[in-house]
């Protein structure tokens, strides 16, 4: 009984929210989305990373019903009828698209009407994004940062459990970027599923738990960001007797690279070689380690490496 309950909790935690299968999209004869498949679990902060023109916005456009795919399929697993799925998702695609001659509040009222949400909640949302004072101001009088924050407020109408941001910091100055990132982090902390498409690595690394790297519409890499970044098995080691440590490391068969970096020795383990075996080996040799750090590859390195391997 206890085991079943745990399984049920696990299933709920890992519930799939979106499954994309073999999506293809052509513009004229150019294939812009090429057999793309991925899935997103509930509660993921999922980053879609790729260079400009890699197909991020097109993919999201297809998933949101504004673009048609030529083949493949996708399915949202959200409660309620399929017709209302988009009403349960908050979306900010690139620059926010609002009526310039309407006030911030009126623009949000239109979105609230579409989603069948009462207007009373809008004041709080405008406050959440720091636009309470400017709610009567016309959208065309807003700065880019304010427009982006209004776009974020619009995504939160109806308290959706899934939020999609496509290049949310595009064109913003440093302060604007920081403020939008802070908002996204606040939203992520509420346990919502977030899909964030960006070409800015820093943005993805700071916010996302999982990433999908695409290039020319094709999947290059997908996985948990922490798992992907430790893939190289680069470890920093130091012991009281550094010479003895170095001697044993040279003798170890699964080390690809060994170099000294100041007070530590840096090793790169061969692919498929585990650190646990090395640790046992050193303990067996009576080497007492006082410094062990598994180095992470930077996202930038991983990104560039993946793209170059893909080419």
């Amino acid at each position: 009984m206890h085991h079943k309950a745990l399984l049920s909790i696990k299933n709920k935690i890992m519930m799939k929210i979106l499954a994309v299968n073999n999506l293809q999209k052509f513009y004229n004869k150019t294939k812009v989305i090429n057999d793309l498949s991925f899935s997103i679990d509930q509660g993921d902060v999922y980053g879609i990373l790729g260079p400009n023109g890699s197909g991020k916005t097109t993919t999201l456009g297809i998933l949101l019903g504004i673009l048609k795919c030529n083949s493949g399929s996708y399915e949202w697993f959200i409660k309620d009828s399929s017709q209302n799925i988009r009403k349960k998702i908050g979306v900010l695609i690139e620059t926010p698209n609002f009526y310039p001659y309407l006030s911030a509040e009126d623009n949000l009222k239109i979105i609230a009407d579409i989603k069948n949400i009462q207007h009373e909640t809008l004041t709080d949302l405008l406050g959440f994004v720091g636009l309470a004072e400017s709610r009567k101001k016309l959208f065309r009088q807003f700065s880019l940062g304010m427009k982006q924050r209004l776009g974020i407020a619009a995504t939160l109408i109806g308290d959706p459990s899934i939020i999609i941001f496509d290049e949310p910091t595009n064109g913003l100055d440093a302060a604007g970027i920081a403020s939008v990132r802070e908002l996204i982090r606040k939203i992520a902390n509420q346990g919502k599923t977030i899909i964030l498409a960006s070409h800015l690595l820093d943005e993805i690394q700071k916010v996302c738990s999982k990433i999908l790297i695409i290039n020319a519409g094709k999947k290059v890499l997908e996985g948990r960001i922490d798992d992907l970044l430790v893939k190289e098995n680069i470890v920093e080691l130091a012991a009281q007797n550094q010479e003895e440590l170095q001697k044993y490391l040279i003798a170890y068969k699964d080390i690809e690279l060994l170099k000294s970096e100041g007070p530590v020795l840096v090793i790169k383990l061969k692919e498929k070689a585990g650190f646990d075996e090395l640790h046992k080996y050193l303990t067996g040799a009576n080497i007492s380690l006082n410094h062990i750090i598994i180095r992470k590859e930077s996202l930038e390195n991983l990104y560039i490496r993946s793209l170059s391997e893909h080419i």
């Binding site: 209302n84 988009r86 979306v91 926010p96 698209n97």
Partner: peptide, 18 residues
């Protein structure tokens, strides 16, 4: 035409309007 030039048609559709 305003809906297309302001791209609000996209926003309306992604917000849930068919």
């Amino acid at each position: 035409c305003n809906e297309f030039s302001y791209k609000t048609i996209r926003h309306n559709i992604v917000s849930g309007l068919s």
